[in-house]
Design a binder for these strands. Structure first.
Lengths: 170, 170
DNA sequence: TGATACCCTAGCGCCCAGGTAGGTATTCCC
DNA sequence: GGGAATACCTACCTGGGCGCTAGGGTATCA
């Protein structure tokens, strides 16, 4: 696998928050129980989300978490990056402060890294996909058309029929 | 990071083989020394590549490895998959034997996984990018047009112009 | 016949993902 | 005010797997 459960669990939490956006703050314990996820662990994840400014919190009784912005304005790129750190497909590739891509192998000697192009493209395709999706896209998900569209062919169908939504406000 | 050094090192080996395609078999020790990579570890990686039918080997003196096919006919998707196993952005997502995407969380209860769409798309964008590139593209890499075309610009151009080939044969 | 290289199996240390534990601070309701 | 509920913080633990190393065996060439 490539992303850890940080991303997996964290995204689930965010989707749940998005689903109930505009309502009262939602206690983390409720999300944990509902999703069958370990509460104490979620607390670590949601701390990252809060520090990234993606969720707000209310302490005390009747407290909980809520989205800091509208679900349509939060991209999955922000969410995943808050949870996992800077997105890099491979260790030798990192993003510089100016957005340029740096290969750690390259600075050692003068020679150009022949594989940099590959990993740069892979990284970019991941980031672009994450940037194209917002939480709102996932909230609409569960209530899809109908029937078990999950068995045999959903990949291509789900992907090819929809052009990327591009609701990105970022 | 997302891919391990298996992919990193393995791709480097393949690029080196591609660079000298058509010549004599290349001893792994030579590639290891040239790239500053641990020989004994490379042997494990190249074993995977061989089992996947991507490289041929000649034993004995004057032996070594060579590409099983032309560099233009070997996609990075094949290489990476041989090295890392089936590509999945996250543990709960796996590819079924028929090519469909399965979410391990989904079968437990009847409910649909709201994040499946996300990870399916991420996976697809990765696979597509890897399928679009061949070893030949990386061999030509170092001698690109001119100047530091690696900073910010070439990404979009390279990615947006090509429609997906969808040659999934694996 | 020896040197060269591929080929296979075992094993090993370290790091970190994936939690657990326990305490503190803040807010609401009665 | 008191207590319940909740966020918030720091520290700790543990298993597994990545990234090797070790040591052989086997085929081929000069």
């Amino acid at each position: 696998m490539m992303f850890s459960t940080k991303a997996e669990y964290g995204v689930r939490v965010m989707v749940e928050l998005a689903r109930r956006a505009g309502e009262e703050p939602i206690p983390l314990a409720e999300i944990a129980e509902r999703g069958g996820l370990p509460l104490a662990y979620l607390e670590h994840l949601v701390a990252r989300l809060r520090k990234a400014g993606l969720v707000d919190s209310r302490r005390g009784s009747r407290g909980g978490y809520l989205l800091a912005r509208s679900p349509t304005e939060i991209t999955l790129a922000e969410v995943v990056e808050a949870l996992e750190g800077s997105i890099a497909p491979i260790e030798c590739i990192t993003e510089g402060s100016d957005g340029s891509i740096v290969c750690s192998r390259e600075t050692q000697r003068g020679h150009v890294c022949p594989t940099k192009l590959l990993w740069t493209r892979v990284r970019f395709s991941i980031v672009r996909t994450l940037q194209e999706m917002t939480l709102a896209d996932l909230v609409l998900g569960p209530g899809l058309p109908s029937g078990p569209a999950l068995s045999t062919g959903p990949l291509l169908a789900a992907l090819d029929t929809e052009p990327p939504p591009l609701t990105t406000g970022a």
